[in-house]
Design a protein around this nucleic acid. Sequence first.
DNA 1: CGGCTTA
Length: 720
Amino acid sequence: MPKNKKPAGGRPAKNFDPSYARKSGGPVGTTTGSRSPGHRGYRAVEGDAPKKARWNADERAARRHSDEPREQRAPRGDRYDGGAGRPAYNRGENRTERPAYGRDDRAPRGDRAERPAYGRGERTERPAYGRGENRTERPAYNRGENRTERPAYNRGENRTERPAYNRDDRAPRNDRGERPAYNRGENRTERPAYGRGERTERPAYNRGANRAERPAYNRDDRAPRGDRAERPAYNRGERTERPAYNNDRPFTRGQRIERPSTGRISSGRDDRAPRRDSNFDRPRRDAGVDKNFYPNRDAKGNFTPEDDVVLERLEAQATLAVDVEGVSFSDLGLGGNIVAALAELGAPSPFPIQAATIPDVIAGKDVLGRGRTGSGKTIAFGAPLVEKLMENGGGKKRAMGRKPRALILAPTRELALQIDRTVQPIARSVGLFTTQIYGGVPQNRQVGALQRGVDIIVGTPGRIEDLIEQGRLDLSEVTITVLDEADHMCDLGFLEPVQRILRRTATGGQKLLFSATLDKGVASLVKEFLPSPAVHEVAGEDQASATIDHRVLVVEHRDKDRIIEELANRNEKTLIFSRTRAYAERLADQLEDAGIRAVSLHGDLNQARRTRNLAQLTSGRVNVLVATDVAARGIHVDDITLVIQADAPDEYKTYLHRSGRTGRAGKEGVVVTIIPKARQRRMTELLGRAEIEADYVSARPGDEIIEELAGHMTNAKLTA
DNA sequence: CGGCTTA
């Protein structure tokens, strides 16, 4: 706490003083906190003031910042005083002052007696679950024999059997003292507020130095093999199938130590997302458990060329650009407020895809829409969706705790965020609320928003399904569902969760599927959910758009990184795609080392870093982003003039989506795909499928062609 | 390979 907030001679505000609880006296009657009413921390009466009633988590979530658009609030860490000045919130002894954070309201008390000691017996055995020094003692993080004792944590049927897990029924507060050490004790005080603003101050959790000290966390070397054999068959099956699991982690320890820090601010190295093995993957390991969150993809490879035909088979109704000339959004059936909001968003009049689909959506039809990337698909579904909700809305509007009536699903968090940035202002213009539901961030705020009541949900499948299972999200009144990047949502790994989610929505609800590429991969969804869809695409706007110059560089493998470096050494925005997270990270590092400011974007970064790195490209703070295919679809960044495919894509659709990051809104762009000689045949086949013509050029570092492609020479020469 | 849930 800043010293200047302490009145001279006073004692620290009790909420902020970790040592307070130890001082037996309690209030001694001197002034404290702010003297001005309305200021945070204001205390009108000292000493005998009644103890402040506390909110439980849900109440707090419902009240917090209710006066500002919730989606625009700063991330947690930036609020209040940034956390750094809040030394002990949620920690140590303070904890005891808090009457059961987030528990009271959850389950009926009655449960308690029935579950006398769930999760406690074990606890004594591992007093500091998963943390600190204990870690080394538990080489097999979260695994091993404990597992068998709690056979179904967080899973299907168990869930229903113990409706009150993680809830009220644990123990009355005073029980606390008896509870061995759950979440308390010395560890707690040592941890400077896990997961909040102070993050950067956190000494070494999951970071460089510590890494080396923690010999066994989550890594290859974490547990002797023998451990595994002893484990009674739980959690084994997949393991054997994935022998290299954890071996191809992007950062092996070796690398880490070699380059402890290059001084890159943005390396992202310190912002790794938590590993996803153990718990995260666990559900799918158990046969017989219905929850199959991310189904394994062993079945992949059933792809046959015949499946991969372009949408024409679905008899798209083509719309010509000329058809929509002079048409306004009002003509299409949108209300005045929405039209005004669209104008504000920079969309004064409809694009063809919008003109094609908006009337059908308002008419209540299911719609399949294919439009070139950057053709305005978000508005094509967002605006009529809001219009529909208005028509059906009636008096429910703004009722506390009303159930959502529209759902927009996207394959990546970044895309969900971006969609919300467009849809939210449209919705707000007519008094409807949106909220984002996606993983990688604390769920409190999202749950709070749901409790206040929202109309439109924008999110990714994982968290949405999670909240459904927690009983915190009810889709039964969702009458309009949108799948953006629909074909990707039908890929293995996404299809099943998406199907489960769609089945949770109102029966007979309207479904809209949009993507830049659509093929028969969507058939299974169409069959089940879109009985007779209207299919739209925009004629003459295929992906081989004239504004993009496609090139293929055939290089020696050893020259590849060097050539990428030369290509990326330019003054305009460049997006580089790699196949793996590790390579994306390595390339970003290499570019930085070469003096080219670059950041990365991939699933090994935590969400904060992902958001920040993408924002750095958007804002122009850096010109180079190295990404996995997380950035391939839907992400819009202005003025990317060069897309480099450091690894060629496997699928023509991926090529189209990646290259769609440039040449947006009619601007020019170059797509350079770097391949080894051996890949030429495959590449040609892929380009044929994508209906793209591209020149092949062999290149070595320093070649003129690289200068050209980087834009250091004139366009005239480039095309010559 | 990548993407997608956890306090």
